[in-house]
């Protein structure tokens, strides 16, 4: 009973651990920025008041559109990556054929995919979708495949000794075992997708944060660029925050 109580206290400590340091770190950065705004001219480092004023005046439809693009493309990249990972996991032969192609796709820089998309596709939405899937898909595939391959053999053998069906093996061992890999790859790919989508939106679109940034650059409005950057960071942190929350819930056993 005493140990059970200790466990409860330990759980509570884990919930709060690290939150204070996180807040202090961000606050220190904000203060340093504000100090820098007094030293440097506003076009180089605008103060928080200027950034906030600009922020309020932004058209957030662009942010909404960017988020939708990122989430739809990531969902598709995840579905394709997951499916291929399962196929490759089940067949070593197929894996040997697909892996070189995946490595090739991964080696192509994001900017090249943007250029290919401009040359190959007319529809701007599809260009962005294509670029995001090409850049993020292989990451999902490799991480999920590794997650499945890293399931300890002794756990598989233990479960098999109970003689489960294939469906039970997947539900009770494989899926729960790859949850950490899935969450990690989502966190990484969210960051990647938010960075890449803005580049992709610079070309041929009339909406999204990338377009808005390009527009602000045309107006030489640095405060607007900073404000949009702040929005992008907020979007990324919020999306990653959702994944962290899921992680805290699904991986509380860690």
């Amino acid at each position: 009973m005493e140990r059970a109580r200790e466990i409860e206290v330990l759980k509570l400590y884990r919930v709060f651990r690290g939150r204070k340091e996180y807040a202090i770190s961000l606050l220190a950065l904000a203060v340093a920025w504000e100090i820098a705004s007094y030293i440097f001219p506003p076009y180089a480092v605008p103060s928080w008041s200027i950034i906030l004023k600009t922020l309020i005046s932004l058209d957030f439809t662009h942010a909404y559109i960017t988020v939708i693009r990122v989430l739809l493309a990531l969902a598709a990249a995840f579905a394709v990556g997951f499916l291929l990972a399962v196929i490759m996991y089940l067949s070593r032969r197929i894996e040997r054929y697909i892996l070189p192609l995946v490595n090739l796709v991964m080696a192509v820089p994001a900017i090249c995919w943007v250029l290919f998309a401009i040359l190959w596709f007319k529809e701007p939405e599809f260009r962005i979708f294509f670029v995001l899937v090409a850049v993020c898909g292989p990451g999902f595939l490799i991480d999920i495949l590794d997650g499945m391959k890293n399931i300890p053999r002794h756990l598989r053998e233990m479960l098999v000794s109970f003689r489960p069906s294939k469906n039970q093996l997947v539900r009770k061992l494989i899926l729960p075992a790859i949850v950490p890999s899935i969450l990690t790859t989502w966190k990484i790919n969210l960051g990647l997708a938010v960075r890449v989508v803005t580049v992709a939106e610079l070309v041929g679109t009339i909406s999204g944060i990338g377009y808005a940034l390009n527009f602000a650059l045309g107006n030489l409005s640095l405060a607007e660029i900073f404000a949009w950057s702040l929005v992008l960071v907020t979007i990324l942190l919020s999306l990653q925050g959702v994944v962290y929350m899921l992680e805290a819930r699904l991986l509380k056993w860690r």
């Binding site: 756990l155 479960l159 000794s161 109970f162 489960p164 061992l173 056993w253 860690r254």
Partner: peptide, 28 residues
């Protein structure tokens, strides 16, 4: 359901509680 094994390592599924681990064979 007729044969069961206990190994040198406990081979518990780390994401399951003690009760859920003990239930594993019964679920199957």
């Amino acid at each position: 359901g007729k044969i069961a094994a206990v190994f040198q390592e406990d081979r518990l599924l780390p994401w399951r509680t003690a009760l859920d681990n003990a239930k594993l064979g019964l679920e199957i």
